[in-house]
């Protein structure tokens, strides 16, 4: 499973993008389950995806399936996945 996270916006306005492939990872099962939950947890309301001034926007792409979310309306699973892939606080 290939997971690509793109983070845009934020006070600094600096974009960040990172990719993770679960192949060969000892925690592949855990990460794949997390990614499925992150996709499912995408908020249905457009207002949540629009975000707030200076808030981060995230694009989560899992094997071609894409969801968008924005702070502060990011589910626990989405945030955990974002932190894992971007390897930075979220």
């Amino acid at each position: 499973m290939r997971i690509v996270i793109t983070r845009t916006g934020g006070f600094a306005g600096i974009e960040r993008r990172a990719e993770l492939d679960t192949n060969g990872r000892p925690d592949a099962t855990h990460v794949q389950a997390l990614a499925h939950r992150a996709l499912a947890a995408s908020p249905a309301e457009a207002a949540s995806v629009r975000g707030v001034p200076d808030g981060f926007h995230y694009e989560i792409d899992v094997d071609g399936r894409t969801v968008h979310c924005a702070d502060p309306h990011v589910s626990h699973d989405q945030r955990e996945l974002i932190r894992l892939v971007l390897r930075e606080g979220a």
Binding site: I14, E15, G24, V31
Partner: peptide
């Protein structure tokens, strides 16, 4: 450990700019 796997996966990908703040 995840970090190492991530690097291996990225090395297989010729497209560069992953993992940088761009």
């Amino acid at each position: 450990a995840g970090g190492r796997c991530q690097i291996r996966a990225m090395s297989d990908t010729v497209k560069s700019v992953f993992c940088t703040i761009v």
